[in-house]
Design a protein around this nucleic acid. Structure first.
Lengths: 160, 160
DNA sequence: TATTGTTATACTCTATAACTATA
DNA sequence: TATAGTTATAGAGTATAACAATA
């Protein structure tokens, strides 16, 4: 029988995965759960979790960002950021300022305390990641991050 | 001041991560969520989800496995497998057989239909993974799986 | 008509505690 | 006492629908 596919398509590329352990998605989930548990433990002394940390970091890294922009960047629903922002605001980590040109938008600016706390949280998370990744070389860590980003990130600015 | 650390420890190894995008855990979560959404969509026509698929695959790959053993292998709680097994059992994908030597244990054996369905589900998931990983070479896919497994898996049998 | 921030609500996934039967 | 299977329940995290204010 004649193949419709080009010769360079190997059998391996056509093969159906046959075991759970062969699934990259399975290892992705296991590794992510493993990380999340360690990250939660690492952030407990700071009385926060990974999502509020990501939200505060978004504000610190991009002062003046809006909540809708944070949601788009982090891939979360607008409805779900409300309680997280309320919590961070109550702890005095940022201030809201209505945009002068568009009164629908609240621009979020980190306070001094928010910047300090974000740095502290990053320190806790850094220690956790060093622990989690202790079996990987720095080159392997960089390669892992590159491959993961390639999976979920939209194609960056085309350079053709 | 004198350092307590060996000279080969570079500054990079000591550095605190400063941005969300630098966190491997962040990319792990984003990639895992991306995968889970695609996997859920891929399995929808088969009317199942990732966890029931993993459970059925565990039974097909190791006939006679118990539910407690599945839970330990997949890192899930015994309480949470009950409804999943009930669902798979109702669809006729496996049979329970009380262990003759220890009547606490139910040994689970895949039915013919269960084996066929597991193969079908693997086919759907394979297509999803091929799609998800289309930007990675086969070498990169294998490297990614190796690095992910190194993160969450306990140290294998020592070969010293 | 579309977007922002918001409320209310539901659903999935996971975690804990307690029970029974067996060992 | 320890484990297997089970029930009930509670907590995260996430999803949808709808609303008022604004563009």
């Amino acid at each position: 029988m004649s193949s419709e596919r080009p010769q360079h398509q190997t059998a391996a590329a056509e093969m159906t995965i046959s075991r759970l352990e062969d699934l990259i998605g399975y290892h992705l989930r296991r590794a992510s759960v493993f990380d999340l548990q360690g990250a939660a433990a690492a952030l407990e002394p700071a009385n926060t979790r990974t999502v509020p940390m990501s939200v505060l970091l978004s504000i610190v890294e991009a002062p003046g960002i809006s909540s809708a922009e944070i949601c788009r960047a982090l891939g979360m629903q607008r409805a779900n950021i409300v309680s997280i922002l309320a919590e961070l605001e109550e702890r005095g980590f940022f201030l809201r300022e209505t945009d002068a040109a568009d009164q629908r938008i609240q621009r979020l600016f980190p306070s001094r305390r928010g910047q300090e706390e974000a740095a502290r949280w990053l320190g806790l998370i850094t220690k956790h990641e060093r622990n989690m990744l202790c079996r990987l070389s720095l080159d392997e860590q960089m390669e892992l991050r590159r491959l993961l980003a390639k999976i979920w990130q939209e194609d960056g600015p085309q350079q053709s």
